[in-house]
Design a protein around this nucleic acid. Structure first.
Length: 586
RNA sequence: GCGCUUGUAGCUCAGACGGAUAGAGCAUCGGCCUUCUAAGCCGAGGGUCGCAGGUUCGAAUCCUGCCAAGCGUGCCA
């Protein structure tokens, strides 16, 4: 419909250019919007207003000239000029009924688009460090990321979902050491636990499982473990120095093979847990990309070599620096520390080079908003590697701030005191989780009151939408119980009888679905789809209360049944897309 | 200090490449179940769009300054 109108306007512009009314060099973007108020017709454009200045003409007069040149087609019954120069289009109401047929013919594929044109797109999301179970903050990234990926797929992109596993670096060493210390406890050693270690219960579980397999093989007397270790924070020392020394001690006492054993026990168990967790949340990845693999296959060296050849690396203070400030970053960044170890950033450069090498048309990274300062340096790296940094879109997700009633819930993976995604799912259910998480714009700060979310009250908007679907199913069950049969064909013939206000409104809303889907996908904003669902559900509930469907007039009855069947189909399609159930009964 | 993000109804939030009278849910108040599920519907109240300027036919939206909140500002990841 919009395309048709755009075509008409384009054609009018051409005519005006030929007539010399408008300078042929002017190429205005044509914006067509749905009107908010029915008195303004069905669609409107501000073309005359935006064209007024470059064409040096009065907007209303210009609008009149445009309208005069518009080709006449039966679909458009009336064109009006309103306000300062809006052009309003009135569409033949008969054409609105067609949407019901489209939807019922299209079924589960109704609404799917082609805007992605088969382009390949990589969506990396969650990518939480494998140092503990996912918490509710990760949950938002998970829900948002998978919704974005699913939306993009729905509009024709070829999507790959990826989880970047940070299985290298200091945090992993802290985890490994924490496990080992808990293991020593199980062996009977009395070990003071470092304040900077991972204190979660899951660390004990991993240690316990490890002990079952290796027995006391990894045991060392605590005196030896703690010998000459600098004091921990609560003994007046530095917690970082303390834990680093413990890590070194673990590596020395265990040797690389045994240390690796503890490390693997930890990563494997935690990753398995994360994988299961996400799977139960309805998310599955095509790739789990290991940071370690970048070290093992010398990808990092290669990436750094590229940067070096491009002239972006230099030495200073024993470290190797990437001159990212030359490419828009605030300052230069270290890629190889003076101790010879490459930084996390170096891994990320190699990782993004790998992403680019895989030939995606577009790359999406979804990060926690606390990483926003990281964007310029990654973009700089992409440029330095000779690629187009516009290929990368970094989407930020604000962590949800948890409340229990009025009390803010403090969270930290290290302290082990946090609400896990699994707990949240168990308490409020997958559907409500999903719905709540993507209901809000991703970069918006979000207050998540556990008390409210875990209270299974009717305030929950997900029920409202699901209920609309269940209600429609119920109507069809009633039809059966009354011994009547549905005649789809008769209903199609009777669509013109759907002239009530509620019906017209529903027809318009239904026809918007593909547009909404496309916009939500292209703007990476699943919350737009949620808003749409709420609107559609509202219009249905309102219709339900205003008019009976199972009326005596068979034609009208079947026309209405076709309409609500179309509503049900769109509700189901959108909910399915968001990985939320569409129950037949509630 | 500097940078990024945010500030819209009592609460939680939509609306932002400038567009017509700024919307929704919750909460509050008043109605609607002998009739397809009341997890619903109908109606009412509720706003200096953080503040102050500027740009123009028109600003919640763009620009400048200020105020407030969150985050960032590591040879951590």
């Amino acid at each position: 419909m919009k395309q048709t109108l755009e075509f008409l306007l384009q054609s009018a512009l051409e005519t005006l250019k030929k007539q010399g009314v408008i300078d042929p060099g002017i190429q205005p973007a044509i914006h067509i919007e749905r009107t908010r108020d029915a008195s303004h017709g069905d669609f409107a454009t501000n073309l005359a207003l935006s064209l007024a200045k470059p064409a040096k003409q009065n907007p209303r007069q210009l609008a009149e000239r445009i309208v005069a040149c518009l080709p006449v087609i039966p679909l458009v019954t009336r064109v009006e000029i309103a306000g300062p120069g809006f052009i309003n289009f009135f569409i033949d109401p008969a054409s609105q009924f067609e949407i019901v047929r489209h939807i019922l013919d299209g079924g589960a594929s109704f609404g799917l688009g082609t805007a992605g044109a088969g382009k390949r797109i990589l969506v990396e999301f969650v990518s939480a460090n494998p140092t503990g179970p996912l918490h509710v903050g990760h949950g938002r990234g998970a829900a948002y990321g998978s919704a974005v990926a699913d939306l993009l797929e729905a509009v024709g992109f070829e999507v790959e979902r990826e989880y970047y596993v940070n299985d290298a670096g200091r945090q992993m060493d802290i985890l490994t050491t924490s496990i080992w210390l808990r293991y020593l406890e199980i062996c009977g050693e009395v070990v003071p636990f470092p304040s900077n270690g991972y204190r979660g219960e899951y660390v004990r579980d991993i240690a316990s499982n490890l002990h079952k397999i290796v027995g006391n093989d990894l045991r060392h007397p605590v005196e030896l473990v703690l010998e000459d270790i600098p004091a921990d924070e609560h003994h007046g020392g530095d917690k970082e120095k303390h834990i680093d020394a413990l890590i070194d001690r673990a590596k020395t006492l265990l040797g690389s093979e045994q240390y690796e054993l503890v490390f693997t026990a930890g990563v494997d168990e935690i990753l398995t847990d994360i994988r299961d967790d996400l799977h139960e949340f309805g998310i599955s990845y095509q790739h789990w990309f290991s940071e370690r693999s970048l070290m093992d296959d010398s990808s990092i060296q290669q990436a750094l070599q590229h940067l070096d050849q491009a002239g972006y690396l230099y030495q200073d203070g024993g470290a190797t620096w990437f001159a990212s400030s030359r490419l828009g970053d605030e300052k230069d960044r270290v890629v190889v520390r003076d101790n010879g170890q490459s930084t996390y950033f170096a891994s990320d450069i190699a990782y993004h080079m790998n992403k680019l090498d895989r030939g995606f048309d577009r790359i999406i990274d979804i990060w926690g908003a606390d990483h926003h300062g990281y964007i310029p340096r990654v973009k700089a790296a992409i440029q330095a590697l000779g690629a187009d940094d516009a290929k990368l879109d970094v989407l930020l997700v604000q962590f949800a701030v948890l409340y229990r009633g009025d009390e803010k819930v403090q969270m930290s993976t290290r302290s082990g005191e946090f609400v896990t995604l699994r707990q949240l799912r168990n308490e409020v259910g997958k559907d409500a989780c999903r719905f709540f998480y993507v209901m809000r714009k991703s970069e918006q700060h979000m207050d998540f009151d556990l008390k409210l979310a875990t209270a299974k009250t009717n305030e929950n908007p997900v029920y409202y939408v699901q209920y609309a679907h269940a209600r429609i199913c119920s109507v069809f069950r009633q039809l059966d119980e009354k011994g009547r049969t549905r005649n789809i064909h008769l209903g199609m013939e009777g669509l013109a009888l759907l002239t009530e206000d509620h019906e017209s409104a529903l027809l318009v809303t239904l026809s918007k679905y593909p547009e909404v889907l496309e916009k939500a996908a292209m703007q990476y904003e699943p919350h737009q789809l949620i808003s749409y669902l709420r609107e559609l559900a509202y219009q249905f509930h309102s219709y339900y209360n205003a008019h009976p469907f199972l009326v005596d007039d068979d034609t009208l009855c079947n026309a209405r049944l076709n309409l609500i069947a179309a509503v049900r189909q769109v509700l189901a399609n959108a909910l399915q897309l968001l990985n939320i159930h569409h129950p037949e009964a509630m």
